[in-house]
């Protein structure tokens, strides 16, 4: 951009840039900000004008199709999503804590087992683990995971326990060494020191990252369609995709997105609050 020179032209030739010097640091910052705002506004205006809103609405947001999704998308699909989430989160939390303790164990084979498990299930796409648990376990053991929610919850529980193990381990390691020393000096056994002093403090530290993992888990329940869904276990994404193929319209997916956001946004706001509180408590 060329700014007008209020003192007239030609003064910049011999001197070392007095034209630039005339703007103070603050003025220059204000100018930059103004340019960015203007460019953003232009871009938004261009989008508003050039987008074909009519066609967009027809494909993605037909009010009657949107309304048709309710209440079943909440009462059936969201309910199932939350059941899968609650079951797999419980499995992941317990298994994650056990894995974290194994990972920190002084017994080498325990440590190695935890490392291999964590690397394996963190490194593979969740979809592959879900398929493996859903189809490999029944073939290998000639037994099905019990319950209509069993296989899916177990699969996601296995995947997320690997993530949570690392989070919980970091939390345990963040508890100062002096805490264990104080507990041991009072005559507590190692187990007592861990369960009543270290782990409660570790969980306070990891509540925000664990909540983030919970949000990711909610969204990953959409992978469970690969295990085959019945009308009883259908979750939000599968429900919306079925509706898309029935109506030949994408509006049901928009409804699904709205339902996901109604669940996840309050949770992520909660994480923000927890983190702010944790910062204040330090």
């Amino acid at each position: 951009m060329s700014s007008p020179d209020p003192t007239g032209t030609g003064s910049a030739v011999g001197s070392t840039g007095p034209g630039h010097r005339r703007l103070t640091r603050r003025q220059r910052a204000r100018l930059t900000r103004g340019v960015v705002y203007a460019a953003t506004l232009l871009l938004v205006a261009w989008l508003v004008v050039s987008v074909d809103w009519g066609r967009l609405q027809e494909a993605f947001f037909q009010p009657d199709v949107f309304a048709e999704q309710f209440p079943e998308i909440v009462t059936r699909a969201a309910r199932n999503t939350l059941i899968f989430t609650a079951l797999s989160f419980s499995i992941a939390l317990v298994a994650g804590l056990v894995l974290a303790l194994l990972r920190l164990s002084s017994i080498t084979p325990y440590r190695w087992f935890a490392i291999v498990y964590i690397e394996l299930f963190r490194g593979m796409p969740a979809l592959i683990t879900v398929i493996a648990v859903g189809f490999a376990i029944p073939i290998a053991l000639d037994a099905r995971v019990p319950g209509i929610y069993g296989a899916g919850s177990l699969a996601l529980g296995i995947v997320y326990s690997a993530y949570m193990a690392e989070t919980i381990r970091a939390g345990i390691e963040a508890v100062p060494r002096g805490q264990v020393e104080a507990a041991r000096s009072l005559g507590m056994s190692h187990t007592w020191a861990m369960t009543s002093i270290v782990i409660p403090q570790a969980f306070r530290i990891v509540i925000p990252p664990l909540t983030n993992e919970l949000v990711a888990l909610i969204k990953d329940t959409s992978l469970l369609f690969v295990l085959g869904t019945t009308i009883e276990t259908i979750e939000i994404t599968k429900f919306a995709r079925d509706a898309v193929s029935k109506t030949f319209n994408i509006t049901p997916l928009v409804a699904a997105a709205a339902v996901y956001l109604a669940i996840t946004v309050p949770l992520t706001r909660l994480v923000g609050l927890l983190e702010a509180r944790a910062r204040k408590a330090r």
Binding site: P176, A182, I197
Partner: peptide
Amino acid sequence: VDAVRRRIGMVFQSFNLFPH
């Protein structure tokens, strides 16, 4: 050792109270 430690009180430079 746990039994012996019960007979010994220890106070640390950094207090080490349980914050929770």
